[in-house]
Design a protein around this nucleic acid. Structure first.
Lengths: 245, 245
DNA sequence: GCAAAAGTGTTGTCCTTACACCCATGC
DNA sequence: GCATGGGTGTAAGGACAACACTTTTGC
């Protein structure tokens, strides 16, 4: 840290009044933006609202808010989720901080992006404010602020993360068929997968519980419904070692 | 965003004065902390200084500084590196933002952690200020602020990252032996690797250039010296697909 | 009975692992 | 000549990729 002339130091040159020290730092407004992914109609969806800024009229925006005084940013992200979706048991992870000086038209604002995954069926949107809506990720073009860049960063993060961690189940109902699971992976990774190899892969992991139930009301042979065995997974997290780039 | 009563809105309810809007946000001091890793004596090292706060007398601290007005945080991190090490061509990546309300004794300060890798031989430390020193990562215990947590987060990030990206070369001299490279991986991953398999792995990648030079002044058969082929790697970045958790 | 998706096994290839001996240099 | 680490090959096992047919249901 630079020496500030008005900061008192003790005999060995150490700063005693840390509150005063911090008072000399520039202060910046901090916001949290949540990229909330859902999965429906075999498409990856993102929850967006209309921007309420005139400069971004008709543009879509992430769900965000400023961080309150003394609020941890994780808590702010949960608060935003709770406020917008009514849910508080949602998967959430910090992804990255965006700080380009002119990213906000109202002056310098730093934002911390969080990625959240939620099951669209599990909650009813209260579409009372700002046209809260699910958008297909693929269809999202221009957005307010640098939110397109933020969404793209979170999407790449999700693509990588879903291959190494069992996140995807947060986007599906509690009970799901292998076909739904495969559709999810195919939609997020943007590839097609061999059905037999996909099923073998999950069978060999032995982390799916056969519920004994079957799909209902499908116009073809119904598939089995599974649950993800979170307990077993927690006990057996794999330590992956393998140089590969 | 919440409606602030003193923010002017236009006929359709959109906010016109965004500068005024941003003025209503709480403001927080932001710092950048750099976890600077080096590799020497077959150990992973971290560059630390003595804290200059009296409350942390005799504790070690990361290299950090507050972000200037309108300074992008990446730039702040490069500025800190340049100021402390004199180098400006250093590998640097944002890792995570830390925002626990009481993480700084002087009041609320949010910090963004950056991880940096540099070749210890390539620069001379100007140990004029605050006892700037390299510390073995393994020996680091208690630190000022939440800096131990930050270092541990960056270390885990590095362990993962080094397996998927050719970062490690930033910690080595331009020309290095396969033994040095293997020592680096073993030190960072905390495991031992089979020498033949390690060499075969890198041979099959075909990303090392044989310089034709050999080690000098070693008390055993000298090894070949290699350079990493950054050009070739840039053109062939692997797209990894494989569900595995 | 037909459309549509569920469910299932085998084979070849590639990657990873385990493992032992000779070679070049400094002292 | 001896100590130290450099340099190399092979065989077995495991994971992944490619591929086709039968089964069950709704209509």
């Amino acid at each position: 840290m630079k020496r500030e002339p008005d900061i008192h130091r003790n005999a060995v040159g150490l700063i005693k009044d840390v509150v005063k020290l911090v008072g000399t730092y520039p202060r910046v407004p901090i916001t949290v933006d949540c990229v909330i992914f859902g999965f429906d109609e075999n498409q990856l969806k993102v929850l967006l609202i209309r921007s309420d800024l005139a400069v971004y009229e008709d543009k879509w925006s992430l769900l965000g808010d400023f961080a309150e005084d003394n609020e941890e940013l994780d808590d702010a992200a949960y608060r935003i989720l709770k406020h917008r979706t009514g849910m508080d048991d949602v998967y959430l992870d910090q992804v990255r901080t965006f700080s380009r000086p002119n990213r906000h038209p109202g002056g310098r604002v730093i934002t911390v992006a969080y990625c959240s995954l939620l099951n669209i069926q599990h909650h009813e949107l209260k579409i009372t404010e700002n046209e809260l809506h699910w958008h297909s990720y693929q269809s999202i073009k221009e957005m307010a602020f640098d939110h397109k860049e933020i969404i793209d960063t979170c999407y790449k993060w999700l693509q990588k993360r879903i291959q190494e961690h069992p996140l995807g189940f947060n986007l599906l109902p509690d009970k799901f068929s292998l076909r739904e699971l495969q559709n999810l992976y195919e939609a997020i990774l943007g590839i097609t997968l061999d059905r037999r190899n996909f099923r073998k892969k999950f069978a060999s992991m032995d982390l799916l519980i056969d519920t004994g139930e079957m799909e209902q009301d499908v116009p073809h042979r119904p598939g089995k419904l599974y649950k993800f065995n979170f307990e077993k997974y927690e006990g057996s997290k794999r330590k992956w070692i393998g140089i590969d780039f």
